[in-house]
Amino acid sequence: MNAPTNPAPALVLATDLDGTFLGGSDAQRAALYEQLSARDDALLVFVTGRDIDFIAELIETPGMPRPHFIVGDIGTSVYDGVSLKPWEDFEAPIRAAWGDAGERVRALLADEPGLTIQDTPFRYRVSYDYDPAHLTPASREKVEAAGFDCIVSAGRFFDVVPKGVNKGTTLRRFVETLGLDPRTVLAAGDTMNDYAMLAEGFNAVAVGNSEEPLVDAIQGLGHVYHSPHPGAAGIADALRHFELSGETA
């Protein structure tokens, strides 16, 4: 793995992509990306449900900051941001928790109403699109009874992951493994698959376009800021709110 540019970064931005880092207007995204690119004291971590192929294309977009690390697949994979290779030692507990469960999960849910399997070959998760009109609580109950976790988000995604593995637990272990100062972390998201990351205890922001279930879920979590601004503008707002923008008075 490549080490952080600054071994003691003043900011660790752990951000979801769709609707969050990639949300907001063109001008709002450009302003945030320029701000981050100008800083040599920031560590950028993409924490996303997306796979590495999507991210490999994304970082070729002009003006897109390159992340130092990528926590992909809803917390079930971790990659080096330069080589885009898996951090195999870090992934070992996730790999062990999942084993060869893919076929077993697919068989378990083969006849469940409202689920359509996604064709992306994830390594340590099985993912579906779901139809809210037909999905029943029995599907989640089957998953949990079989010893896995189920994450439902954005009104359309139904993900099966290893027990106890999510964006939050993986981000926590990442911060501890690299010896980062938890006070410098800002976690940012907009859907329920971000909830575990926002609830982990770090500085956190639910951006202004967050789905209603997430907004409801963060009520009472004093460390989570609900920005009125969407996407990238919400992140920039939260950097100021938590005094992590790097600006001096």
Rank of each mutant, 00 (worst) to 15 (best):
P93I: 03
I74W: 06
T248K: 13
G234Y: 10
D80P: 10
S37D: 11
G246S: 14
P162K: 00
G208S: 08
V165L: 04
L186H: 00
V12M: 11
A217Q: 10
D40R: 10
S227T: 04
L84D: 00
L11R: 00
R39K: 08
L244V: 13
A249R: 13
G164Q: 06
K163E: 15
L186C: 00
A217K: 12
G179K: 10
T76S: 06
A92V: 08
I218G: 01
D80K: 12
A146T: 07
P113A: 09
G99D: 07
G155K: 02
H134Y: 13
H241E: 13
K167G: 01
V207N: 01
A101H: 07
C150R: 09
V71H: 01
A154E: 11
V82M: 12
F148G: 01
T169H: 02
E57D: 14
A196W: 08
G246I: 12
S245M: 07
N166V: 00
N203F: 03
I74G: 05
L108T: 13
G246F: 07
G114K: 10
D16W: 04
G155A: 02
F174R: 02
W87F: 12
V126N: 02
A38H: 11
A188K: 08
E57Y: 11
P4S: 06
H226R: 15
P182H: 11
D119W: 13
G99E: 08
Q118Y: 11
A30S: 15
A206Y: 02
N6T: 09
A30M: 12
I218N: 03
A8H: 15
D237K: 06
N2M: 12
P228I: 14
Q118R: 07
F21E: 00
V207R: 00
L244E: 11
D26E: 14
S83V: 07
V175S: 00
D237W: 09
S127A: 14
Y124Q: 12
D73F: 04
L58N: 01
M192N: 08
W87C: 07
E176A: 12
L171V: 01
A249Q: 10
G23S: 07
